[in-house]
């Protein structure tokens, strides 16, 4: 299996905080990967390094089998628009559409036109005066019409309305099928994109906590809900990720796989079990260890 992206023991610090802390992972070619986690988890820093816009302090970043920082050949195969992308003064949409083909060998004018039309991006508005949703639309046009073998999408949904999000999904899937590429997508709208993702990489505090195929990752955790003490007894040997309580009821996300033994004991104890959704999984991994006294309540 060829790895489109290969990150080995990468660390990147700003001042004293390690934004990315000794991270290693690979992304198989022509797949869609979700890069998930809370704000400040290190997603954007990681993407910057994958796009050659930043360099790791230690470790190696390999993209399409080659180094990336200051490598023109590798860079021409990567598309990465930041969530807060800056554009030159007085830029309007047509400036972007005119210059992109000079850098992007696979640029598709038809696809760009289709997206501009679908998103209703205003032609005569300066980009600096655009709304958040319009900025996201411009970024999506630039990202998808580039048809780059490596496409990094950083929070592509910000400010997009429901029609825009549906258009983005449809065009992404359609164009991905006719022009396969490796897509890394970071987002907080997890439920909305979950079905697109072949793999997920979940980050927290600069580290990777989950890196697996989406379905396997979801098999790695479950939600148990019922009477607080019954749930506590059932999960006494499980690692608890997140706890919600109301009155005498608790809903607990725990690490582990649902097996028949567990289902059997849950039925006896009157506890409901369900696979964790991707969103529950990401939320659970983002909970601070220090605020886990509710976990003790369940344990007690």
């Amino acid at each position: 299996m060829t790895h489109a992206l290969d990150i080995q023991q990468v660390t990147r610090s700003f001042g004293r905080t390690a934004a990315v802390d000794n991270v290693s992972f690979q992304v198989p070619e022509n797949s869609i990967v979700g890069l998930l986690g809370r704000n400040g988890a290190g997603k954007t820093t990681l993407m910057s390094m994958l796009a050659g816009q930043d360099r790791p302090d230690t470790g190696t970043v390999t993209v399409l089998g080659d180094k990336v920082f200051e490598r023109a050949n590798t860079l021409s195969g990567i598309s990465y628009v930041r969530d807060n992308q800056r554009y030159p003064d007085n830029y309007m949409l047509h400036h972007v559409l005119r210059i992109a083909p000079a850098f992007k060998p696979n640029w598709s004018r038809e696809l760009a036109d289709e997206l501009v039309d679908g998103f209703r991006i205003p032609a005569k508005t300066k980009i600096t005066k655009m709304s958040r949703g319009q900025l996201s639309s411009v970024a999506i046009v630039l990202s998808l019409a580039s048809r780059a073998p490596i496409t990094l999408l950083d929070e592509p949904y910000l400010g997009l309305d429901v029609t825009g999000r549906a258009l983005f999904h449809r065009v992404l899937l359609d164009d991905y099928q006719t022009h396969p590429r490796t897509i890394v997508l970071s987002t907080h709208l997890i439920e909305e994109s979950a079905a697109l993702l072949d793999r997920v990489v979940i980050m927290d505090k600069g580290r990777i906590v989950v890196d697996d195929e989406t379905e396997n990752a979801r098999d790695g955790a479950f939600v148990a809900s019922g009477q607080t003490d019954a749930v506590g007894r059932l999960l006494v040997n499980h690692r608890i990720l997140e706890t919600h309580t109301v009155g005498a009821l608790a809903s607990v996300t725990a690490a582990g796989t649902l097996d028949d033994t567990l289902r059997q004991s849950a039925r006896v104890a009157g506890v409901q079990l369900a696979r964790a959704s991707l969103q529950e999984l990401v939320s659970a991994y983002g909970v601070n260890e220090s605020t886990s006294e509710t976990k003790e309540k369940v344990r007690a």
Partner: peptide, 14 residues
């Protein structure tokens, strides 16, 4: 496969 992927909005690999 591609038609199902587009119709349901799921990854073609899935």
């Amino acid at each position: 496969t591609n038609e199902y992927a587009s119709f349901y909005g799921i990854s073609p690999i899935t």
